[in-house]
Design a protein around this nucleic acid. Sequence first.
DNA 1: CCCATGACTGATT
DNA 2: TAATCAGCCATGG
Length: 106
Amino acid sequence: MKDAIASNYSLIYAVVAAIPKGEVATYGQVALLAGLPGRARQVGYALHALADPSLPWHRVVNAKGEISLRSGGSEGDRVQRLRLEAEGVVFDRCGRIDLERYRWRP
DNA sequence: CCCATGACTGATT
DNA sequence: TAATCAGCCATGG
């Protein structure tokens, strides 16, 4: 899977990198902006394959405004929340984000 | 080529 | 608000 940069992933990464600090975007949102409407799943797949710490992937959450847990039992989910809180994003008691308030609107 | 899996979404109940 | 169902498609075996 070395051809990741040769696929639409580049576009996905570009969109993720364009998310303003303190805001979040859903997978569907990223997919749409990346020119892949309805392919939210592939966006998640792309992020799963990603391993770039300089990319603000933590600003990408699912449609419910929750942190998507990934396989592997990584600590990523925990880090994601901490990073978002560090940017001013507030989680409710259920660990969810108010999308109406923090959702990125380009 | 076929099959199973997956950081998902949206409508419906 | 939460749970369920069906649809989406790239990736790997």
